[in-house]
Design a protein around this nucleic acid. Structure first.
Lengths: 261, 261
DNA sequence: CGTTAATTTGAGACCATTCAATTTCGGTGG
DNA sequence: CCACCGAAATTGAATGGTCTCAAATTAACG
């Protein structure tokens, strides 16, 4: 069952910049996402903007957090993609979630003092690192933000549940189709996709590690989806040629993403 | 891929009893669990005891909640076992989690207005149904309870992550061993197990639906574990004969259960 | 003590894996 | 701008874990 996992030295590049310059770029995608379900006042937004944070940039495959290590910060993904994973005893890797800009990577750190999984940059990624104590204080002070953050973790949880279903009860074709549906849907909701096309930097090995398959079988299954005219996937670019078909193959129902309520 | 799923009419038996009589039995297991990580004052406990709630009893396999339906309550399991599940398009069932007395079944209902999965009684089960508005008010008023409830949902989430790993990167033997480890560990922590033995009312079909296997293969795998002298499992009773061995087979590490922090 | 659910058994088929080798792609230095 | 390099994608063939289907046996329960 062993599958190769490239190990990359965590040489983190840390950069500090003037807070006021980056302020809007840090908050905008987060506010956009939260705005779908929670209404924040100007006071709420000011309080968020006043949060202390540090910008960090990571190269591809770098670890942002490691299982077993103590937690002190929460991170928002600003640019690039990231994923969370766990390693099993024989060295195989299971990817647990993918993340796109504007999403928190580890809100559970607020209350959990030791990480129970790893976080890796999928491609070159930049994040905002916020001391968890500051976030907790903000949650104590502002009910709307408290609700938004809790809701964020609850939706996270809902997505894990759907992944359990995906891995447990769908075949290779269905699993991959479902994953593509989810990512396309989230990229669209975030305003990052362009119509039916989007940047899609996942390697086939990463898709395999997320769907519980091998890279070889992932390759064959993707080819079948291409041959059937459902998708086009080349050089980090995904085009969904037949959305309805993909939804049917993946048995995809967006309810679990809770874009509203 | 279709697997049989018995459908049971949701004839719920609802019983009301004098709140003061049941009060302690409702709270004790919850407080015991929360006490491992959060310290509650007497005021906190009084506020919890003042929560409005209704006792409900469900027969085996009855639905306590259905995907797509609006949510209005949160439920604590008082007696019996329960599980959460989702059905896929071909009718197959994936069990997402099992629950033992003292655990909340659906805290996410506090913020999510429509259920994204189903909840079923595993055997005859009784629950306390609490209006979610009352819980939210209590969380606004009392920081410790707020923390305890959020932490509960975060640990829930951590367990889902581990299930993703279990389904994605372990073979049948490992998946079943891991599930047994988790349940035994949680039952022990709840003080429900007796040493290495515990009540274990799951059918092989339910174990199969939780591990992404068929009932037939689950049967053969359990037999192998018995033959190897790792477990004894008969007539709703599980005895773990060789804990270390089971832990090794299931690649089990209790960290994700967050019994502390 | 009868009836249904649950467990067990067998044999064949299939989906996905393994292992290895080849081809293509993306980035880099000269 | 092109040759080069390692990573990623692709291909083939053999193996194997799990599934399917069906039937038999055992256990649970009123």
């Amino acid at each position: 069952m062993k599958r190769g996992v490239r190990e990359v030295s965590p040489r983190t590049v840390i950069t500090r910049r003037d807070r006021r310059l980056d302020q809007s770029s840090f908050l905008d995608p987060v506010l956009r996402r939260w705005g779908r379900t929670v209404s924040l006042t100007d006071q709420d937004k000011e309080a968020l903007a006043a949060l202390p944070w540090t910008r960090r940039v990571y190269p591809r495959d770098a670890y942002l957090a490691r299982e077993g290590e103590p937690t002190s910060i929460c991170t928002v993904l600003l640019g690039g993609f990231a994923f969370r994973q766990k390693l099993v005893s024989d060295g195989a890797r299971q990817i647990i979630s993918f993340h796109i800009p504007g999403e928190f990577l580890d809100l559970q750190n607020c209350l959990l003092d030791v990480a129970d999984h790893n976080v890796q940059a999928l491609n070159r990624a930049s994040v905002a690192a916020i001391p968890k104590a500051a976030l907790l204080d903000l949650m104590t002070a502002r009910a709307n933000i408290r609700r938004a953050i809790w809701l964020d973790t609850l939706i996270d949880s809902s997505i894990f549940r759907e992944w359990v279903v995906n891995l447990g009860r769908r075949d290779a074709r269905g699993r991959i189709a479902h994953l593509l549906c989810e990512l396309a849907d989230r990229l669209r909701a975030a305003g990052i996709a362009e119509g039916e096309a989007c940047d899609f930097p996942l390697t086939q090995e990463q898709i395999a590690d997320a769907t519980g398959l091998t890279a070889v079988h992932t390759n064959r299954t993707l080819q079948a989806l291409r041959k059937d005219g459902v998708i086009s996937l080349t050089s980090s670019r995904l085009v969904i040629l037949d959305w309805n078909r993909l939804v049917e193959i993946g048995d995809f129902n967006e309810r679990y993403l809770h874009h509203s309520v």
